[in-house]
Nucleic acid binder design. Structure first.
Lengths: 200, 200
DNA sequence: CGACAAACGAAACGCTGTGTAGCGTTTCAT
DNA sequence: ATGAAACGCTACACAGCGTTTCGTTTGTCG
């Protein structure tokens, strides 16, 4: 049931989103221009402005449409192993082209709170929820301390990922890094009391 | 021993850096313009271009010159307490005006690697080193496990700070947050083996 | 088939910011 | 005094944004 008039060209839409994602990959959002998108996509600027309010919104939609932001939903017997699977997936995605685009979007959000909120609601929060679920499960089956503060653990795990993505201390695909990170978060820094054996 | 010619006006230099920092605070780097700096500082655009190659470099220098980036260097008997002091100091600085400017700078760095490197070398690395020193001390005096991986702990502690600053899950000045964060990083997530008392 | 509605592309506008150049002025060392 | 170098000011060419105008195309409905 569509009224009269020429229907929207899905071909133009796709070409625009493709071109936008490519340009974000290549230049980041700093040098991302609507004119550039129009040129590469073979559409007119008018067409873009008809459907998107501005560069922020276009960039966000290009990211959501193209990037592999979906995270695996493992559900094995071991919460620790599931944690590993999820975080590895995110790290891999961040290490590639998607990562650069994400970095652009997030940082652009600094001066464009609505855009940041969309990213938060559509990407960050679902992922955090997934981690929360896994950790809660781990608490129930005794893998984790019952008094563990879930939010804090989630934040620590995520924090390092985003920090490596944005500040680039060290590469996201450094071998062995994620294992060390997870293990240490789980085991803590304090010395184990000397009883029986060492813990683990 | 200065050659001939009119010496550089420190007054102009200071006015430019002051104005730049103010404008970064107010608008972020997205809307940070050389023209704006010139107008507010009462100098000419040409003067700015004479001394800085572009907005990124100017913003960085304004940040380094103005922000209270100095972190306290506590050295009490307790490494844990020193850790707390340092991280609290950074959190407070990030929660204020400096935080917004830092976010802007990191953003600029995404497409301007030299700028990011300067920030890394001048700000990030010294702070990380300070944390490393404290943790090493804690290892030596038995507060921490001897096999603790220092880098991983530093990254986890820093990560949450930058993530709150940039992604804004939650406010940096949330009461009690930093204590929970530190405690849990130190104590880990795994259940303590049941011997004598609980650890800590 | 014809009328209409809506999307499309091309071109241009005013605006803002960039980065450079020229010019006269000011301040210092020699 | 002279010259070097920094200063402020004005002007300019250029790029990108966001918007508007206009003519064209593509569909639906009567």
């Amino acid at each position: 049931m569509r009224g009269p008039g020429r229907p929207r060209s899905d071909q133009a839409r796709d070409a625009i989103l493709d071109a936008a994602f490519q340009l974000l990959e290549e230049n980041g959002l700093e040098r991302f221009t609507i004119e550039g998108v129009a040129a590469r996509s073979g559409t007119a600027k008018t067409t873009i402005y008809r459907w998107w309010p501005g560069k922020g919104a276009l960039a966000m939609e290009a990211l959501l449409a193209h990037a592999e932001l979906t995270v695996p939903i493992p559900h094995t017997a071991s919460a620790v192993s599931d944690l590993r699977t999820v975080l590895d997936g995110i790290a891999r995605s961040f290490a590639g082209a998607t990562g650069r685009v994400v970095a652009s979007i997030v940082l652009a959000g600094q001066n464009d709170p609505p855009t940041l909120k969309v990213y938060h609601d559509k990407v960050v929060e679902p992922r955090r929820q997934r981690l929360r679920d896994i950790i809660e499960r781990g608490k129930r089956n005794g893998e984790f301390r019952p008094d563990l503060h879930v939010e804090t653990l989630v934040e620590a795990m995520y924090g390092a990922l985003y920090t490596r993505l944005l500040i680039r201390f060290s590469p996201l695909d450094e071998p062995g890094w994620m294992d060390r990170h997870i293990n240490q978060l789980l085991e803590g820094a304090l010395p184990r009391p000397l009883c029986g054996q060492g813990a683990k």
